[in-house]
């Protein structure tokens, strides 16, 4: 549903702060723990949730998210189960937008129409599908938009002014600016460069611009949030989960609280972001 996403961004903007977008991998390390993590995220201050769909060959992801996907798949996670996590979450929370993030093949094999129907039913608001550039919009983007599900596109440093209009054409919900060329989990580049890039994108679109890749700490979130409409944190959360697991990769009592504590800190970071910008 695009409306829930738009409302959330408008509400948060009226608070004068950037949106905190949090990513975790569905089914990591198991279905129930993953559902508990998802339920804990809004309570800890997350505004939007990106729910990762595991894929065997995550070509744009660094080691942390690759391993999270492997743990999830090893635990028997499937696309249907990831949708089920969202559906169970939605029973208790009707306000937090959920964005499914992953790769195209599991969706293609599930069947695009069947997937979109199931996603709507599960309360999904948007999709990020890493390996579907604008050139491939007929595959999933257009059908999703027709059903009222946002298709969120990644813009990167290689997306120059010539290409930006094409990238933005069918984008809705928000624009996800990937702050560097590379895979997830790399180091954060200079915030002033990011601010310039965000401004450049904003000359092409009225959509909110969220920045991700490399945001790990409350301080990062604060620095990025000074210029961006939202901050995306993924690898840091996935690493937090990984560090709480047993040697066999099983959840412990520290798994969910660890994520809560991290997200609370990040949330404090974004909540002081505009104050920082005004200083």
């Amino acid at each position: 549903m695009t409306a829930r996403m738009d409302r959330k961004f408008a509400d948060v903007a009226s608070e004068g702060r950037p949106v905190l977008v949090t990513y975790f991998m569905g089914g990591d390390p198991d279905f129930e723990t993953s559902l508990s993590i998802m339920k804990a995220l809004p309570k800890a201050g997350a505004d939007v949730i990106e729910l990762g769909m595991p894929f065997s060959d995550p070509m744009a992801d660094g080691p942390a998210i690759q391993l999270a996907g492997q743990r999830s798949l090893k635990g028997g996670q499937t696309l249907a189960k990831t949708l089920e996590i969202a559906r169970r979450f939605r029973e208790e929370d009707q306000r937090t937008p959920i964005v499914l993030m992953g790769y195209y093949n599991p969706i293609y094999i599930y069947g695009v129409d069947r997937f979109l129907t199931a996603a709507l039913d599960a309360g999904i608001d948007g999709l990020i599908v890493v390996d579907l550039p604008p050139e491939m919009d007929d595959e999933l983007c257009i059908p999703a938009l027709q059903k009222g599900i946002s298709f969120i596109r990644l813009a990167t440093p290689t997306t120059d002014d010539r290409r930006l209009p094409k990238v933005l054409e069918n984008t809705s919900g928000f624009v996800y600016y990937v702050s560097m060329n590379g895979i997830t989990g790399s180091a954060l580049p200079d915030p002033s460069l990011i601010a310039g890039a965000v401004e450049r994108i904003k000359t092409h679109t009225k959509l909110p611009v969220c920045v991700g890749f490399g945001v790990k700490t409350a301080e990062h979130a604060r620095a990025i949030g000074a210029s961006a409409d939202g901050v995306v944190v993924g690898t840091a959360i996935v690493n937090q989960i990984a560090s709480s697991l047993t040697e066999e990769g099983k959840a412990t009592d520290a798994t969910v609280p660890g994520v809560e504590a991290l997200v609370r800190g990040l949330s404090a970071g974004v909540r002081s972001a505009r104050l920082a910008a005004a200083e």
Binding site: A60, D131, L132, P134, M136, T158
Partner: peptide, 20 residues
């Protein structure tokens, strides 16, 4: 011109790689 052989082929890559 889109790189398709029937339904096969295409350009299923991350946006970072598209300009390249």
């Amino acid at each position: 011109e889109d790189g398709r052989f029937g339904i096969f082929g295409g350009r299923f890559v991350a946006e970072t790689l598209m300009p390249l």
